[in-house]
Design a protein around this nucleic acid. Structure first.
Lengths: 218, 218
DNA sequence: TCCCTACTGTGATTTGGATCACCGAATCAA
DNA sequence: TTGATTCGGTGATCCAAATCACAGTAGGGA
């Protein structure tokens, strides 16, 4: 039942009145991996709340280059959609389902009411802003100051944690897109990691040593 | 009088009760250009509201490299301090006075009360988040996808507008710091712009053609 | 006035990453 | 089964930027 899923995803939202309002007016939907939820330029008219699964948020350059920003996971929402939809501006980002996701879409008017009426919702929104700012700064640091090998290793760690697995089922091209670079660059860097025995490469799969994270910490 | 300065900086805050509270509990201070208001790692216990002048906000890398993020100008506040101080976390950024500034520091408890009590303040905070997210994305795009020559030209335009002048009194080193690169790179790129007659270089000063912005739009 | 320091200009070299040009191997669709 | 497509590997080359190494010059302070 949706109520249970919501309770599990957002245990902090204990106020039954708040939960009722969310369930009553929010739209519950599920999506399969790979589904694109949002493209740059589209307008969004509801605040997307992730209950289960995860959503990958990316920035897209005018000539199509992408850059991974962060994941939305269970109990999270997108700060950018909060800002975009209250300002009725087109999306600045692309959102793709990573793991099969169930989501609750909160109409923007309802969201604005809830901010005023429920401290729990206000706190939730405010902590979302905090959290996302933090992540944006992290990405900024990486892009501005780190070399691609380090960024790739961080990427692998992030993915492992997010998928709770040490096998990544993805292509080099896909990784390259998310890091905003070229496929060859990623292939070569992965090869270096394989030579160091930190990972093993297969077609469409990367096997990662359990102690990968300690290894990169050097 | 402080009340007038506040009214001028934030004409949207019309509610006299709100203004009274800000003036009563806020601390009014002025700072000279060059004054460092905040270093990474410091804790902040108040929301800084810029009334006059401008503040330069920068990200600092662990090995001291800097990256310009945005200016705070009259009527603006720092989204990062909003998040940092409510989470009681150390600052992630560096803030330096660019133009002689007068500021009102709002104690964090007062800020939290005002968010609940005054719609005008809530809207102000919310639009600050929006605004800053936008700017972070712009910086991210620049760092991830643009070459240094383009970034430098955008930098010059931003500075011109912000200082409302077509003379920049600064050093190549300073610019390099703000763009997170090396001085030589900036010197060479500036020389190229001078050869194209778009700017003129002097010691500690760059004279910019009035139609610079149209020129770079090509 | 002279010295020192900060600022600028520029060549040489290195490097990380992007781009181009292929190749073979795995996988899929007909 | 076979042809086409996708994926991964790798050499060659190019380019922006970083780094190193100086040298000249303007200004400020003693």
């Amino acid at each position: 039942m949706t109520r249970d899923i919501l309770r599990q995803a957002l245990p902090n939202l204990t106020d039954p009145k708040l939960v009722d309002r969310l369930l009553e007016k929010g739209q519950f939907l599920t999506f399969e991996p790979g589904k694109t939820l949002m493209e740059p330029g589209q307008f969004i008219k509801a605040v997307p709340l992730v209950l289960e699964g995860s959503i990958k948020i990316m920035r897209v350059d005018e000539d199509g280059k992408e850059l991974f920003l962060y994941y939305l996971e269970s109990g999270e929402t997108c700060a950018l959609s909060l800002t975009c939809c209250s300002a009725a501006r087109p999306s600045e980002i692309k959102a793709v389902v990573e793991e099969k996701a169930s989501m609750l879409f909160i109409p923007i008017q309802l969201h604005e009411q809830l901010v005023d009426e429920f401290k729990q919702w206000k706190d939730f929104v405010s902590s979302t802003y905090q959290h996302r700012f933090q992540e944006m700064l992290t990405v900024l640091d990486a892009v501005a100051f780190k070399r691609m090998d380090e960024r790739l290793m961080n990427y692998i760690v992030t993915k492992m944690k997010q998928l709770r697995s040490n096998e990544l089922h993805t292509t080099h091209q896909e990784i390259a897109n998310e890091l905003g670079t070229a496929r060859e660059v990623i292939s070569r860097l992965l090869k270096q990691l394989e030579k160091k025995k930190w990972i093993e490469l297969g077609r469409n799969v990367i096997y990662i040593r359990d102690d990968f994270e300690e290894l990169i910490a050097k």
